[in-house]
Computed example of a mutant assay.
Amino acid sequence: MDIFPAQYSTLSSKALNRFISERYGLVSTVCRLLIHNVSDTYLIENSTDKYILKIYRDAHRKLDEIAGEVELLTILTERGAKVSYPVADLSGHKIQAFNAIEGTRHGVLFTFAQGRVVNDMNDAQLTILGQEMAAIHNITSDINLKNNRISFSIESTISGPLETIKPAFSDLPDEYEYLTSTAEKVIARLNQFDYNNFSYGYCQYDFLPKNFHFDRNNQITFFDFDFAGQGYLANDIMSFYIHYFLEATYGKMSRGEAERAFAVFVENYRKVRPLHNDELNAIQCLGFGFWVFYLGFQYENFDDWSSIFFGPKYLKDRTALVKKWIDWFGGL
């Protein structure tokens, strides 16, 4: 009997454990699935070491894009950035291929980011974060990868995603009209900036606390560069600011506390790398692109992702959150 075609399989943890143990020369390891998402994340560990195994899907990341992520993280590691990096197997390969039911899936084994997520960072941690993010930008503004990565532009973060998500808003015309009319104002504002004042390079594009760990000694490790691509580095500053916007919006801290914490971060970023005020003033507009970009990503991957939350209520609530974001800065 022929195997019925599939579009998204879950690879066996036991089989992956055997495969990785043999390819990397690891002993007495166990493997378990941590996250089943548009890509899958596994934890591989033994009594002394931990690793993260990420299994990509071709529908989400093509091989050259995965190679671009591996290349970027390898360069960052070689230049001293504090990131979780891809591990080479016994033959020197950093990307593995798996003949899954739906076709070839690729995987990468990463070093484990020691520590934990810290949402309520103290000044010492904000100091480290600002300086280390700037150190990463000093590297990513000075390289050109051989492999392909996305380019973050008005088209890829605003115009394109708005067209992509249009069918999802068929029963929410007012919400879609708000997004499109706001997009026009945002694009007009973005076109007014002098981009000679902006740094350009490879940005992580999701610098939220969920993507870096602090250990007991406040050593930081950044991870999850899955969305990394070329763009204005202010996008990373913006994505971190979104953390404080959300903390204040949901009542976890006051706006004053949020702004003070962000100011500590910026002050220390500037000790390592220049940051023009225009880049900070662009946060509102770049943030609108961030929200719309990820709406487009969620919609495009709905069929292959257990995003049961993605429906009219979520879209209505997310549009309301985008409006709060715009109003947070006094409107447009």
Rank of each mutant, 00 (worst) to 15 (best):
S13T: 12
I237H: 01
L246R: 10
A134W: 01
I326L: 14
Y42L: 09
A100N: 11
K146Q: 11
A15C: 14
I128V: 15
N46F: 07
I220R: 04
N46Q: 03
L90H: 00
T127D: 14
S9T: 13
A88F: 00
G296R: 03
D123V: 00
W325V: 05
F302L: 12
L72Q: 04
E184D: 12
T140W: 01
Y178C: 08
N119G: 15
D40R: 04
T10D: 13
I308L: 14
H106D: 04
S156W: 02
F227Q: 07
F193K: 08
D49M: 10
E78S: 11
I237V: 14
I35G: 01
Y200D: 01
R105C: 12
T10M: 08
S306I: 11
A248Q: 09
D194R: 06
K316Q: 12
L246A: 13
N147F: 02
K323D: 15
E69W: 05
F245R: 03
Q7C: 05
V27T: 14
V27P: 04
E267R: 09
E65K: 05
F169M: 07
S21F: 06
G296T: 06
A134V: 00
A282M: 08
N281M: 13
T180A: 08
M253I: 14
P312A: 13
N301C: 04
S47I: 09
S170Q: 11
D278V: 03
V38Y: 06
G160V: 04
A258H: 04
L162T: 02
D49C: 13
I20M: 13
P161C: 03
E155T: 05
G256C: 08
K316R: 06
L145R: 00
I220F: 03
T10S: 13
L246C: 10
N218M: 02
D64R: 10
P274Y: 06
Q131N: 06
H93Q: 15
I101Y: 09
S91V: 12
E184W: 06
F207H: 05
N148G: 01
G25K: 08
W291S: 08
N144V: 10
A188V: 07
R270P: 05
K50V: 06
H106M: 05
L16S: 06
R270L: 03
Q192W: 10
L26R: 04
T249Q: 14
S28M: 11
Y85M: 06
L63D: 00
D206I: 15
Y176Q: 06
I128Q: 06
A228D: 02
D2H: 11
D89S: 10
S28H: 14
N281L: 14
S239R: 07
H276V: 00
A282K: 02
I44A: 05
G160A: 04
T77A: 12
Q131P: 01
I52G: 02
S13Q: 13
L109M: 04
F240E: 10
E22F: 08
Q204A: 01
G107F: 09
A228T: 03
E163D: 11
D317A: 11
A15Y: 12
P209H: 07
D224G: 03
E279N: 02
P5M: 12
G296E: 08
I3T: 15
R18V: 13
A135K: 02
V264P: 02
I101F: 10
E257Y: 07
L208D: 00
F207T: 10
I101W: 00
E184V: 12
L72I: 01
A248F: 07
F223D: 00
F265R: 02
G330C: 12
S91I: 12
I242M: 11
F19M: 12
G80L: 06
L315S: 00
D226T: 11
H137D: 00
